[in-house]
């Protein structure tokens, strides 16, 4: 059953990609294909990064409601970004090689995430609702510190930061794509190598330890990978709060299994379908101007509410 469903997902993704690439081309095919191909690659990369980060995060926290974005991972990324602009000024910032910005930010994010979220996770392991609250409060806090910093920057410089902080699925920064691809493919490969350990970590800290998997070591490693993935995705398209949640919720419904050997690739496929398929539908089929991010965030937010209500009832 799982095999068939995976095949269906693969087919659906291929269909979405073809539709996205080939429909409604006006003028030069060569140009359109190259341009769209790059955008497609960016969408797939962002989707894969968000999906794998969210699934791994849910595994080590033992719940299916929280995602790195909801806990404020990308808020942390923006905070670091604004911090850099604030410290060096926008002019200097714009002269820094974007590669360096992403790399430096990824490194800083790794350190901050392990310190901050490592502590939160140890606290909240047993109490999900407390962790949800901590995460949401943390995210709000990080966002307000960020906007405080941004207010202190002069308006022009502020515009430079803001340009970097809004989800733009339709104009991913393709020049960053090579670096992003490299970073996230390494992180994705490492996540794939962790797939069996993730299965065991999902049993909870006690069971994992008695099977010889140290939960603390695993947690740190996973947080590092998540930081890289979130940094890459945020650098490409800006923050997205509920996209990861939407994708994981759909993945768990379509692929009811605990095995990460299935869940991780399944999540990647599902994310691609939602992003590419959504983009295709909105842009080419329905000719809507609404950014896809708005729809995705709305649906994701709805899923978050539903899961939260279901969780509270239990």
């Amino acid at each position: 059953m799982l095999r068939n469903r995976m095949l269906l997902l693969v087919l659906a993704l291929i269909l979405c990609c073809l539709g996205y690439l080939l429909t409604g081309v006006r003028g030069s095919w060569a140009f359109a294909l190259e341009f769209r191909g790059l955008k497609l690659a960016a969408l797939l990369l962002v989707g894969a990064a968000q999906a794998v980060a969210a699934i791994m995060f849910q595994t080590i926290t033992g719940n299916r409601i929280l995602t790195p974005s909801i806990m404020g991972f990308d808020a942390l990324y923006l905070l670091i970004l604004s911090g850099i602009v604030f410290a060096f000024g926008a002019q200097a910032y714009q002269q820094i090689d974007p590669w360096l910005v992403v790399l430096g930010n990824a490194v800083l994010l790794c350190a901050a995430a392990v310190a901050l979220f490592g502590a939160v996770l140890r606290q909240g392991q047993s109490d999900l609702m407390r962790m949800v609250l901590t995460g949401v409060v943390l995210a709000v806090m990080l966002r307000s510190i960020t906007s405080f910093l941004q207010r202190m920057i002069d308006p022009n410089e502020y515009a430079a930061v803001q340009a970097a902080s809004f989800a733009r699925f339709s104009r991913a920064e393709t020049d960053l794509l090579a670096l992003a691809a490299l970073l996230s493919l390494v992180a994705l490969a490492m996540a794939w190598r962790l797939r069996f350990r993730l299965d065991v970590l999902a049993l909870g800290p006690t069971a994992a330890l008695s099977l010889g998997e140290n939960p603390l070591t695993g947690q740190r490693l996973v947080l590092l990978l998540i930081s890289v993935l979130v940094a890459v995705s945020t650098a490409l398209v800006g923050p997205v709060a509920f996209f990861g949640l939407l994708v994981t919720a759909l993945t768990y419904v379509v692929l009811p299994t605990h095995r990460h050997a299935v869940l991780l690739p399944g999540g990647v496929l599902m994310a691609g379908i939602v992003l590419v398929g959504g983009q295709w539908l909105m842009e080419r089929v329905m000719h809507l101007d609404t950014p896809l991010s708005v729809v995705v965030e709305f649906l994701g937010g709805l899923v978050f509410l539903l899961l939260l209500l279901k969780g509270l009832k239990r």
């Binding site: 033992g62 999902a202 049993l203 909870g204 006690t206 069971a207 330890l209 008695s210 099977l211 010889g212 998997e213 140290n214 605990h258």
Partner: peptide, 18 residues
Amino acid sequence: DRALARKLAILPQHVNAS
């Protein structure tokens, strides 16, 4: 941890599993 897991198994008093 792995070496110990091959030598000793434990069933805790309170187990909770997914």
